[in-house]
Design a protein around this nucleic acid. Sequence first.
DNA 1: GTGTTCATGAGAATCATTCTCGCATAGCCG
DNA 2: CGGCTATGCGAGAATGATTCTCATGAACAC
Lengths: 142, 142
Amino acid sequence: MSGADQPEGTARRPSRQRSAVLALLDDLDGFSSAQDLHALLRERGDAVGLATVYRALQALVDDGQVDVLRGADGEAAYRRCSPVHHHHLVCRSCGTTVEVADPPVERWARQIAAEHGFADVQHQVEVFGTCRACTTAGPVVS
Amino acid sequence: MSGADQPEGTARRPSRQRSAVLALLDDLDGFSSAQDLHALLRERGDAVGLATVYRALQALVDDGQVDVLRGADGEAAYRRCSPVHHHHLVCRSCGTTVEVADPPVERWARQIAAEHGFADVQHQVEVFGTCRACTTAGPVVS
DNA sequence: GTGTTCATGAGAATCATTCTCGCATAGCCG
DNA sequence: CGGCTATGCGAGAATGATTCTCATGAACAC
């Protein structure tokens, strides 16, 4: 456990299963849980073990090719995303996701951290809401 | 899961255990996991069941008296906090937490959401870093 | 004071995630 | 070219946090 395992992101042996996971993520729009992805792969005919899905997902997250989000229930949700830094605007009803880049927030986070003497800053920003389609179509039943 | 259970936050019967949890959180500075809180209560002599700690924590979160944060491992961490909206600056080494209020980010989140037609907006902003004390004292071994 | 209701506590149950171990395959060496 | 070795895979067990169940005890209502 010394931290950095692979010198670079692509030091792993290529495999059909890994590509299948990435391909599936490419086809999906919103965030999906690891269990869902596993079930979908099975339906597609790409038989992949559950443990392998987790391994592939972790590798992809390490590589920065996939974003991970923790829902309120602690379940991890994954999504293919652009490698550049960005944040998400997620519809809490239909799961649609919009990627947003935002220099002001980046700057603000760095500044706040610097003011308090914090270094090596990371920040995590997610915005949840109900998209227009869901607002008009299906208001939450009370 | 019909949504609103209690009409108002204080509809629960008061109890020694619930106060003990809140009192303990008052004494602690950073975020603590439910399991840690349970162990600490035991050490203090306030014998409280683990399930009760979880129940009390959920109630307090519902009331907005406690903040919950999900670590990278999915474990929930709780912390007593002011009832007004704010965000956190957390030291990833020693756990020290600074509450930061920030109108600009609030405005930014609302604006971004509005631009994309999202309503009923919530946002989640956490900034992680290494505080000055930890930076000078114990740099991370590579 | 008595009955009813709600919270508690201990342990079992659940669920996502990780680990173990044996097997298959890919790449490399002789 | 054949065999060797490391690495990834798969299935199921193990782990660990959180939630549920149900019987007991305490608090409120009358």
